[in-house]
Write a protein that binds this DNA or RNA. Structure first.
Lengths: 332, 332
DNA sequence: CGGCGGCCATACCCCGTCGGTATCGCGCTG
DNA sequence: CAGCGCGATACCGACGGGGTATGGCCGCCG
C-alpha cells in the first residue's frame, strides 16, 4: 500500500465515480481502476460496489475513508514539520550566556523577538561564565554561547562571531579639569579616581581595563564600584570619579557629564556568540541572525562589528531573513 | 512522497546507517540512498548528515522521524479498520424487532453475544411491528428486521429467512379428560376454555390461532389472556384452561401439565429475519449468522427451519464463523 | 424493442523508475 | 601508507504505473 493508493481511493470515494475521479487526478480511468483493484487486494476486502450507474462504498470502504484521509493528512503534516524544522521555525536551542548579555539588553530583545515571532521554538537559557560555556559546548549541554570576549584558547572546533562591539570612552564630570582638554593619553588619568564595574559582574572587561592602565604605567584608584552603566554615569555626574563607559551610552547625553575618546585605549565592550563549528542547526542560525540584527541596531557607530565569521553582511534589522536551503521542491 | 520513502527513512533513522538499514529492508544500499535522496528533495530539506562514519539526523530529520512513524502507523490502522469492517467486526447495525423476539429470549442472547465478542459493533434496536419494519427497511432507517412471520407482500427487494420455527402443541392439565386421549382433531376442542396470548403482544400468532379454530368450526372461548409462555403454562396447570404453546416448552416438563400434538394444526411460532435483498453488509451477515446459531440451539426438533434462503446449512452454534472474503492478501 | 451512450473492466503497450551490480571517493585506522 | 568501511555515483534490467483501444453491461430513449 502506498500513499498513491490512498489519494486515488479518496478521490473515487468523494466522486463516487471512477471516470470523474480519474479526471480530477489527471490520469486515465483504466489505470485508476487498476490501482483501486490493487488497493482492495492489499487491504483484503472490496472497498467499492461497482454498479453500472456509478459506484458505492462498501462497509469496509466507509470505514477506510476517514482513516485514509487521516493518513494523507498525517503525511503532509510530517512533511511540513520537517520543513519548518529545517528553516528553524521549530525546535529547541540551549543558550549559555554571561550576565552582561542581559544587562546590555540585547539578549532580552532577542528573546522577545522569538517569543513573538517563533513561539514554536523552545529556548533553554543557562547563565554561566565563559569557561563554563566552553565546557558546556564541548559536552553538548548547550548549543550556543554568549560571552564577553573570545576565549584565550580560540579553539578550532568552535566558531566565534562577535556580534556587538562598543568601544569604551571616558566619562568625566562637565566641570572636571579634563573636560576642557581635547586629547588624552591614558597616562594622563593616572591620578584620577575611577568608578569601575566590579570584577564579578564583568571579569573580562574589568581585567582588560586594569591591564591597559598598568601598561600605561599606573594602577587605577577605585573610588566606587558600580554594576550598571547608568549607575556609573550617575556617579560620574555626582563627581564621585571618572569612568570608562560604552560609546553607545554617550549618545544619550546626560547633563553634567562629558564624554571623551581616548586614542589607542582600544578596550571594547563585546558580545560574542560561539558554537560548535561543524554542527548545522537551523534554529541556531535563526538565533544568530536575530542576534546580529538586534545587536547592530544598538551599535554605537555605523561601522559593523569586526568579528571573524560572516558578521560583516548587512541585513534588515528585524525580522531577520530565514536561512533557506537551496533544494528545489517537487510536486506534492 | 510515498509510504515507501517513510519506511526507508525510519529504517535509516533507526539504524543510523544506510548499509544496515538496507540489509534490514532486504534491498541493496544504493537504491536506498537514492530513495532517501528523493525524499529529501521532496521534503525540501536534508534529513541526514552524511559522515564517513555513519550518518546523523539533521534537525529536520529529528522532527520528521516521529511524524513519519505516525504516518506509517496510521496507514496500518486504516488497513486494519477496513479489514475489520469487511469482516463485520466493526460498524453499525440498526435492527427492527417485534416484541415477541425479545420474549422468546433469542434476541437478548444475540445481543449478549455481540456485547461479549464484538463490542466494536454499534447496535441500534428499534421495536416496531412488521408493517413498520417493512417501511423502515424500504426507507433505509433500519438494516435488519425481525418479524413474527413473512409479510403477505413478500416483496421482491427483500430477503427473508425464517431462523426459528416452533410448532404449537396443546397444553392440558394432567387430570383433564383430554389428557388420556391419544389423537385429537382441532374440532375436539370446540367446547374448551383457552388461555391465549393477547392480540397486542403477538398479533400474527393470535390471529393465526383464531383463524385455524374458525376453520375448524368454532370460535374459541378465552378464559384468560397471558403474555408469557411460562405464565400460560402455570395457568393451564392451575386448571384455568387449555392453551397452545410452543413445542420447545414441552421439553421442560412441568408437573400437572401434559402436552399433546394436534395433527394438521400447522400453526408455528416463527421468527423471521428480513433485509434489503441486494445490499451487502458484513455486520448484518454476522448478525444473521449469530441469530441462526442462537435460534437453532433453541429449536425444539432436530430438523432445521424451513425458510427460503440459505437457512438450511448446518453451522456450529456459537460462535458463528465470520463471513470471509476470498481475496488473497498480498505482502505488507 | 433495438440502438445508443455512459460507465467500469480488460487487454495490451510504453517508458519511468525501482532495485540490482560494479565502482568510486573519502576518511579513518592499524 | 595500504586497507577497509561507508555512502555516492553510474549504469542496467525488469517491474509496474499510466497510456490507448476495446469489450461488456445496464439504463435510457427514440
Amino acid at each position: 500500500m502506498e500513499l498513491r493508493h490512498l489519494r486515488y481511493f479518496v478521490a473515487v470515494a468523494e466522486e463516487l465515480s471512477f471516470g470523474r475521479a480519474a479526471r480530477r487526478l489527471h490520469i486515465a480511468q483504466p489505470p485508476l481502476s487498476r490501482q483501486i483493484r490493487d488497493l482492495e487486494r492489499d487491504v483484503g476486502a472490496p472497498l467499492f460496489d461497482r454498479g453500472s450507474r456509478g459506484v458505492t462504498l462498501t462497509a469496509a470502504g466507509r470505514a477506510f475513508l476517514p482513516e485514509a484521509r487521516l493518513t494523507l493528512a498525517q503525511a503532509e503534516r510530517a512533511q511540513r514539520t520537517a520543513q519548518r524544522a529545517a528553516q528553524g521555525e521549530t525546535g529547541r536551542l540551549r543558550v549559555g550566556f554571561v550576565e552582561a548579555a542581559t544587562h546590555s539588553g540585547i539578549l532580552p530583545d532577542v528573546l522577545g523577538f522569538f517569543r513573538m515571532h517563533l513561539p514554536a521554538i523552545g529556548l533553554s537559557l543557562l547563565e554561566m561564565d565563559s569557561a563554563q560555556q566552553a565546557e558546556a559546548l564541548r559536552e553538548s549541554r548547550i548549543d550556543l554561547g554568549l560571552i564577553g570576549s573570545i576565549p584565550p584558547d580560540a579553539e578550532r572546533w568552535l566558531h566565534t562571531e562577535t556580534v556587538y562591539a562598543d568601544p569604551l570612552v571616558l566619562a568625566v564630570p562637565e566641570d572636571h579639569p579634563l573636560g576642557g582638554r581635547r586629547r588624552f593619553t591614558l597616562a594622563d588619568l593616572a591620578a584620577e579616581s575611577f568608578v569601575l564595574v566590579p570584577r564579578y559582574a564583568s571579569p573580562v572587561l574589568h581585567d582588560d581595563i586594569i591591564a591597559r592602565c598598568r601598561e600605561a604605567g599606573f594602577s587605577p584608584r577605585i573610588a566606587q564600584e558600580a554594576a550598571g552603566w547608568h549607575t556609573t554615569v550617575s556617579l560620574v555626574s555626582a563627581g564621585v570619579g571618572i569612568a570608562f563607559v560604552p560609546q553607545s551610552l554617550a549618545r544619550l547625553t546626560r547633563t553634567g557629564v562629558a564624554y571623551r575618546t581616548i586614542r589607542d585605549f582600544g578596550v571594547e565592550l563585546q558580545l560574542t556568540a560561539v558554537w560548535r563549528q561543524r554542527e548545522k542547526s537551523p534554529v541556531r542560525e535563526r538565533f544568530v541572525t536575530t542576534l546580529r540584527a538586534v545587536a547592530r541596531a544598538r551599535m554605537p557607530a555605523a561601522r559593523s562589528a569586526r568579528g571573524e565569521g560572516s558578521a560583516g553582511r548587512r541585513q534588515p534589522p528585524v525580522p531577520p531573513a530565514p536561512p533557506r536551503t537551496a533544494l528545489p521542491r517537487t510536486r506534492r
